[in-house]
Write a protein that binds this DNA or RNA. Structure first.
Length: 495
RNA sequence: GCCCCCGUCGUCCAGCGGCCCAGGACGCCGCCCUUUCAAGGCGGUAACGGGGAUUCGAAUUCCCCCGGGGGCACCA
């Protein structure tokens, strides 16, 4: 039988990393088995659901490279795929449950329920006590009611979970839960169970937080007449550094944040796959195709996984390194633009500089957002970083060396990195200064900082005129102030 | 309070009764390479929550304890 999985987000905010991982695992299971992934939008809560969130979630899934076989925008035989468009179906299902004796009307008000729940705080009572179960008619003066599922008083339900084995719940611990609100809208329990049945979902893969609620789904699903329970798989939670479930408290949980921070989707997907699962081989660098090949739902871990930004950075660096030059440029452009380093549209010179400089820094950055600080000095006049300045200019030979370097560069007849390097190395050797120290002053003089792409290549891209102009500015600053620049901004020229 | 899940290096993942004085990855430390910073190469640090039981033998099985987490809404 074909495997049908689903990812069913509630459009009440941004897609966050936990949701993205759930989507990924569902996607992997579908792809691996040759089955289908259904994207269903669980927007039964009309108050909290927004169109903006809906669109954002779709965009984010696409950015991650996780497409769906059935769902919004792609259609399918089991639609519609937004629960808000299926309310009539749920109402009919609820009606049948009621007439079949599986559900009953409860007239208790929210206030009454809250009042009765209070004692539960000190442990004396559980949830709803089922008092409306045997009601023959509506109590006087009451017309509003919710529909509750009549949970059998005795027996147990066993959830078969691929990851956790069989988990058994005693029915006496499950209260008669609400399946339809007073306004006749369905609750998550009803709509979810109904759709998983009606859409032919065979595998329900979701977060561990839904495990305690699974017996409800099974009960409902059987009441609908579904003969076989779906296969469940409850993924371990993703937690923050404090071991608490990842939430906005931990700062950056929205996938969109990672996109904006300069992470590439390949890296994020690869990293997410490693949260709760691991390959058998030793390499953890796995493209989607590799993941499809190696992934096994059965081998997903049961332990909560901590989100480790350091490892994500490492992985992102790896993927940025392996980006083809044109791809790297394409992806870096938005970050350069955001820093105001480019004309709109970028000039020919700018594009030339970027495409020459980017390959030099791909290996040196963890995130695309670092591109501007890395190559910005090639696009416009940088300001001197005083820390870098004092470090490299403190040597007594700094001034002399810088002077000779400028002189030598001016005599070059081919402005290419190799002759530039040879000439500069010659100057350093002559002065008897070790290479690792000798180029510091010139580097800061042309780029403003001691961190950046290789110097000789940088000089080539910068061009002779700009390089010597900046070096001259640096020289005069050195003469005027020495290695300690007064507080303030010290731009290296105006272009 | 009640129900449920979980517990191996700082972190993620291996380990399914002997191959484990526990393996890989990230991080960290050191060395090498080196025009900065990275990257890369090599090496190192570091863990089976505690107690019982079963067994010739337990990280691996069972029980108890401890610890962490989830759920108990007219949210999903």
């Amino acid at each position: 039988m074909e495997i049908r999985t689903r990812f069913a987000p509630a459009p009440t905010g941004h897609l966050h990393v936990g949701g993205a991982r759930t989507a990924l695992f569902n996607w992997l299971l579908a792809r691996k088995s040759g089955g289908s992934l259904i994207l269903r939008i669980d927007d039964t809560d009309r108050r909290r659901s927004t169109e903006e969130s809906f669109i954002g979630i779709l965009d984010t899934l696409r950015w991650l490279g996780l497409g769906w076989d059935e769902g919004p925008e792609s259609g399918g035989d089991f639609g519609p795929y937004r629960q808000s468009e299926r309310f009539d179906l749920y109402a009919a299902a609820a009606g049948e449950l009621e007439s079949g004796g599986h559900a009953y009307r409860c007239y208790c008000t929210a206030e009454e329920l809250a009042e009765r729940r209070k004692p539960a705080l000190d442990g004396s009572v559980g949830g709803y006590d089922g008092r409306c179960r045997e009601l023959a008619a509506a109590p006087a003066g009451r017309s509003d009611y919710v529909l509750r599922f009549a949970v059998p008083l005795e027996g147990e339900v066993t959830v078969t979970d691929v990851i956790r084995g069989e988990v058994t719940f005693d029915l006496s611990t499950i209260e008669d839960f609400v399946i339809q609100r007073a306004d006749k809208t369905p609750t998550f329990s009803l709509a979810g169970a109904y759709d998983d049945w009606a859409m032919g979902i065979t595998h329900v893969v979701r977060g561990e937080d839904l495990l305690p609620v699974t017996p409800r789904q099974i009960l409902l699903s059987r009441a609908f007449g579904r003969s076989d329970d779906p296969v469940f798989a409850h993924l371990p939670l993703i937690v923050g550094a404090d071991r608490a479930p990842l939430s906005k408290r931990h700062g950056d949980v929205a996938v969109g944040w990672y996109r904006d921070a300069g992470f590439v989707p390949e890296a994020l997907v690869n990293y997410l796959a490693l949260l709760g699962w691991g390959p058998e081989g030793e390499s953890e660098i796995l493209a989607l195709a590799d993941l499809v090949e190696q992934f096994r739902l059965e081998s997903v871990s049961r332990t909560p996984a901590m989100f480790d930004l350091k490892k994500l950075d490492w992985m992102n660096n790896h993927y940025i390194q392996s980006l083809a030059p044109e791809r790297a440029v394409e992806r870096a452009l938005p970050f350069l633009r955001a820093e105001g380093l480019l004309d709109d549209p970028p000039s020919e010179r700018e594009m030339d500089v970027i495409s020459r400089a980017l390959p030099l820094v791909q290996v040196r950055i963890d995130r695309l957002s670092e591109v501007p600080q890395m190559i910005g000095f090639l696009l416009g006049a940088p300001e001197i970083d005083s820390g870098s300045w004092s470090k490299v200019m403190a040597h007594e030979w700094a001034h002399g060396l810088l002077t000779s370097m400028v002189e030598v560069l001016g005599k070059l007849d081919t402005w290419e990195s190799e002759p530039i390097g040879d000439a500069l190395k010659g100057v350093a050797a002559e002065a008897g200064v070790k290479a690792r120290l000798a180029f510091g002053p010139l580097r800061v003089a042309v780029s403003g900082t001691s961190i950046g792409p290789p110097l000789f290549e940088s000089l080539e891209i910068l061009g002779c005129d700009l390089a010597t102009e900046r070096a001259a500015i640096a020289l005069s600053l050195l003469e005027a102030h020495g290695p300690e620049l007064p507080d303030g901004r010290w731009p290296l020229g105006s272009r």
